[in-house]
Amino acid sequence: MSQTPDSEAIVSALLTMAGLSIFDDEKAALVGGFAANRAAVDALYKVPEVRYEVPALTWSSVV
């Protein structure tokens, strides 16, 4: 997958927002994998059957 020009800016912003200070080589690896990772996640929004589906999460008012 080709790298989007914004991957570095996006990853930098997300890491900053998360308060993470990571090593340069680790950041480079995250940036390098970001576009492919994002494409895989974007595909989840294109599953037709999910349109009216509720998430596989349960919540109870009773602890």
Partner: peptide
């Protein structure tokens, strides 16, 4: 660190597709 690159809607959408998968 990878986990911080996903959004809250991404997580919820994943759980919706997970239900479809089930």
């Amino acid at each position: 660190a990878t986990g911080t690159t996903y959004s809250a809607p991404d997580y919820i959408q994943a759980q919706r597709v997970r239900r479809v998968g089930q």
